[in-house]
Design a protein around this nucleic acid. Structure first.
Length: 402
DNA sequence: CGAGATTCATGTGAAGTATACCTTTAGGCTTAA
DNA sequence: AAGCCTAAAGGTATACTTCACATGAATCTCGTA
């Protein structure tokens, strides 16, 4: 009986008109055929990169703009077009796109170069080789290929924050040592201030050209959403005013188009699961909450155990009182470690862990001075209560705390 | 009352250690001439 | 003798520890009004 119900479920599932026509159109890595409201920037980048077609070295570019202002998309799009032309004319141009934010992939000097080499099909061990050596291999590889390399470093501020600017210095200088190849750097960042802390030499060579992407305004976001929705959904599946609402949500977040698209996609998924023939505004609200929750849960699930225990201590402490400081967290952390038989790290290290959790945006932990009562971090949770609660239960389960 | 010294709790930098992983090298074993 | 495998030696990156010093405003101290 039960099985029959399941079969029925699947059958009706197939028969049901799907809301989606092409779901990929809403995914963040989707590249539409044309990019709206970024003509000026595309033209700019194209102008700067064009010399590559004559085997000259284009200027390095530094691009700044808030999240979801189309930086990545625009750059990739332009670079792709360029390589297409180059391919047609048999010119050796290669572009590599690398997101420095991805943990364990490109967040240190060594790992970044290793990742680049992987793009060339070379396997580089995760550790063991001298960094110099890896540089050397990289050198030889691109020099042998004799081409113009356009290297797009996304979220470059993350990289500099973790690995320092030496890498960038090396990369900008690399050209003078290459005989047959050239590298053009395109740095993408959503933090403009970060260039201030850069070595002046790096700064000047990285930002030979600077481009600023202004955030989209609500109308532009609407426009983008309309376009993508047209590609993604069957006709008449959107409730009246849905896109407007969605755009309004995103405009509130400084015109983040990525967020707007994600919101729309998740709302649609929820609607589909509900069996609703159209996507309603109520689905948007659920979607907004779900996105934030998933993001937070994903983030912490991927963290090492020590981070999780630390986070649990923080959540627990914060729920009991406000005004939580490093010392409180550490003693509770030690207790938990003892409880689950984990060797506790030193307070020094936990201090750094707390700092990293802060960087991830899960918690807020600014350093404050309490005068006579010392200097510490004032720690608080960065998400809303419902999500925090979910995080807690997940952590408790994951760590096996009774 | 106010300027300067004091103090606390922990931030933070530097240097050292443990671990995991890498390449190179030398010795021992196998194999084929 | 040449070729292959294995284990030891020597090297690196990373996460963490240890040590020592830095921080910065509330509070204290003490001279002065």
């Amino acid at each position: 009986m039960k099985e029959k119900g399941l079969v029925n479920f699947f059958e009706t599932y197939i028969q049901k008109e799907p809301l989606f026509k092409d779901k990929t159109a809403l995914q963040s890595n989707y590249t539409p055929e044309s990019i709206s409201h970024r003509d000026e920037q595309i033209q700019n980048i194209a102008n700067i990169l064009a010399p590559a077609l004559r085997s000259e070295k284009p200027s390095n570019i530094f691009i700044y703009g808030k999240t979801g202002s189309g930086k990545t998309l625009t750059v990739r799009y332009t670079a792709n077009q360029l390589t297409n032309v180059a391919h047609a004319k048999k010119l050796a141009i290669k572009t590599i796109y690398l997101n420095c934010k991805l943990k364990k992939l490109a967040d240190t000097e060594y790992r970044l170069i290793a990742q680049l080499l992987r793009e060339y099909g070379k396997e580089i061990p995760p550790t063991g080789l001298p960094t110099d050596e890896v540089y050397h291999i990289f050198f030889n590889t691109i020099d042998k290929e004799k081409h113009n390399l356009i290297l797009i470093l996304d979220e470059i501020d993350q990289l500099v924050g973790k690995a320092g600017d030496e890498l960038l210095y090396n990369l900008t200088r690399i050209n003078s040592e290459l005989k047959n190849a050239q590298i053009t750097l395109i740095g993408i960042s959503n933090d403009l201030v970060f260039t201030d802390n850069l070595d002046p030499r790096v700064r000047s060579s990285l930002s030979e050209e600077e481009l600023i992407f202004p955030p989209y305004n609500a109308l532009q976001i609407q426009d983008i959403l309309h376009q993508r929705a047209k590609a993604a959904f069957r006709p008449d599946t959107l409730e009246e005013g849905l896109i407007e609402k969605c755009a309004a949500y995103a405009a509130r977040e400084h015109g983040d188009s990525r967020r707007a698209l994600e919101l729309l996609r998740v709302a649609a998924e929820i609607a589909e699961r509900d069996g609703s023939p159209t996507i309603k505004i109520t689905h948007l609200d659920i979607a907004e909450e779900k996105i934030e929750r998933d993001r937070a849960l994903d983030l912490i699930a991927g963290q090492p155990k020590q981070f999780q225990v630390t986070l649990l201590s923080i959540i627990e402490s914060c729920s009991q009182k406000n005004g939580v400081y490093t010392g409180d967290i550490y003693s509770l952390y030690e207790k938990y470690c003892d409880h689950i038989g984990l060797r506790p790290l030193t307070q020094r290290r936990i201090s750094d862990v707390i700092g990293e959790l802060d960087m991830l945006g899960i918690i807020k932990a600014p350093v404050i001075s309490k005068g006579r009562y010392g200097r510490t971090r004032e720690i608080s949770i960065g998400t809303n209560d419902a999500i925090t609660q979910r995080m807690k239960t997940m952590l408790v389960q994951e760590l096996g705390i009774a």
